[in-house]
Amino acid sequence: MTNSMNSVKARWAAQMRGMFPDARLKKDRGTEMTYEILPRDLHQILAYLKNSGWRQLSMITGVDWIEEGQFELVYNLFDWEQGLRVLLSIRIGRDKPQVLTITNIYAGAQYYEREIHEFFGIEFIGNEDALKSLFLERWDALPPLRKDFDSRAYSDKKYVKRFYDPVYGPQGGAPFERS
């Protein structure tokens, strides 16, 4: 990152502070800045960023912080001109998680929201499509990326286990004992 870019970044960061005092800069990794913001500020900030160069939504992803009873949603924006990435993180409660869709700002969010709905059970108000299943047809358990979904227990319950004994041993015999 060059000096001029650094000053551009600093100017932008100052502007961001002025406009959104509740947004907390959590981590600055040079070309990647992570902000913790309030869910109510999300659309304001996204709209502002989209008009300031962050034309690309790289992805949206969820993290289940089960011990804190929260879901984190991370909106990942990239400005190709400046080479600067902004990660916006919001936290919402784990029961009946709901958040407004951002498809009105970034159309590309549609399928990310649908994927998150499927894997975390987070509802995106305003994105009806997101309620439909995408990857998991006829899924019959908790949304699988939640931390309380135990994939091994699920597969043990769902599928029959097969056991084999080792065949190729010394002299073709099999002096083994399964421990």
Partner: peptide, 14 residues
């Protein structure tokens, strides 16, 4: 035969 895929390796593999 999936059974034949379960092997205890030795000095050389058949």
């Amino acid at each position: 035969d999936p059974q034949k895929l379960y092997v205890m390796p030795e000095e050389s593999f058949p």
